[in-house]
Simulated assay, not measured.
Amino acid sequence: MATEGFTTCLWFDGQAEEAAHYYVSVFKDSGVGRVTRSHEAGPGPAGSVVVVEFTANGQRFVALNGGPQFQFNEAVSFQIHCADQAEVDHYWAKLTEDGGQPGPCGWLKDKYGVSWQVVPDALIEMISDPDGEKAGRATQAMMAMGKLDIAELRKAYAGE
Rank of each mutant, 00 (worst) to 15 (best):
E133S: 10
K28V: 12
G106N: 11
L148N: 04
M142W: 10
S77I: 00
G14L: 10
V88L: 03
D121Q: 15
Q69R: 12
G5C: 01
D131S: 09
F6I: 15
G44I: 01
Q85W: 12
A144F: 00
Q140K: 14
W107C: 09
A141E: 09
P45D: 10
I80W: 01
E125W: 00
E152W: 01
G58Y: 14
F78H: 05
G33Y: 12
V76Y: 02
E133I: 13
T55N: 09
P130Q: 08
Q59S: 15
V26W: 04
Y157R: 06
C82M: 07
G132F: 07
E133Q: 14
A41P: 01
G44M: 01
F78T: 14
F72E: 00
K155A: 15
W116H: 10
F12A: 03
G47N: 01
G47Y: 10
G99E: 11
E125D: 15
A56H: 06
C105V: 07
F70T: 00
T7Y: 00
G66Y: 02
G67V: 06
W92N: 00
D98M: 13
F78S: 08
H21N: 15
S115H: 14
F27A: 13
G159A: 08
R137F: 08
R137M: 05
V26G: 04
E17N: 08
A83G: 15
P120Y: 05
K147D: 08
G5K: 07
E4K: 13
K109L: 01
F6M: 13
V35E: 05
A41N: 12
K109P: 01
G47F: 11
S30Y: 09
Q117H: 13
F12C: 05
S77F: 00
P102Q: 06
F70W: 06
I124G: 03
E125R: 14
S25R: 10
P120W: 05
V52Y: 05
S115I: 05
W92F: 08
M145N: 04
G103D: 12
A122F: 02
Y91K: 02
G146Q: 13
W116E: 08
T139P: 00
M145L: 05
G31V: 11
G132K: 14
Q69I: 04
R34A: 11
K147A: 13
N57A: 15
D84W: 12
R60Y: 10
S128A: 11
I80H: 06
E87F: 06
Q15R: 13
C105T: 11
R60L: 12
K111R: 15
P45C: 00
L108P: 02
E53N: 13
D131H: 10
C82N: 06
L123S: 02
G67S: 03
R154N: 14
V24R: 07
E40Y: 10
F61W: 13
Q101Y: 02
E40F: 12
E97P: 09
G47T: 09
E18K: 09
A122S: 14
N57T: 05
S115A: 15
Y91A: 00
Q140V: 06
T55R: 14
C105W: 03
E53I: 01
L64I: 12
N73T: 01
Y91E: 02
G132C: 01
M145E: 00
A141K: 13
G106A: 04
A19F: 10
Y91M: 02
A122I: 06
L10A: 03
A20H: 04
A63E: 07
A156C: 12
A158F: 00
E18F: 00
A141C: 10
I127V: 13
K94N: 05
L153R: 02
I150Q: 08
D29M: 07
V35A: 06
R137S: 05
D89R: 05
